[in-house]
């Protein structure tokens, strides 16, 4: 997700489109990406640490993006 304070023109355009469809009461709209990974690891903590590295080094650009990690087994 884009960090707070980073202008998100795509989110704004989505907000305007929702408004023109008649949805009222929509405030700020922020958009982002979901990336699904399948990992061989069965160690939850190790997997989380590894994904964190992946986010830092490639999946997110931390100049403008935040990320959160969710693990499903």
């Amino acid at each position: 997700m884009l960090k707070n304070g980073v202008l998100d023109p795509q989110g704004k355009a989505i907000g305007h489109a929702l408004e023109s469809l008649g949805f009222e009461g929509v405030g700020e709209v922020r958009q982002g990406k979901v990336i699904e990974l399948e990992l061989a690891s069965s160690d939850r903590n190790a997997a989380e640490a590894e994904i964190d590295q992946m986010c830092q080094r490639l999946l997110a650009n931390t100049v403008i993006e935040n990320y959160t990690i969710e693990i499903e087994e």
Partner: peptide, 11 residues
């Protein structure tokens, strides 16, 4: 180089 190039403001 610092910073990033984002989507054009006018989309």
């Amino acid at each position: 180089l610092p910073g990033i190039l984002m989507r054009n403001a006018g989309l």
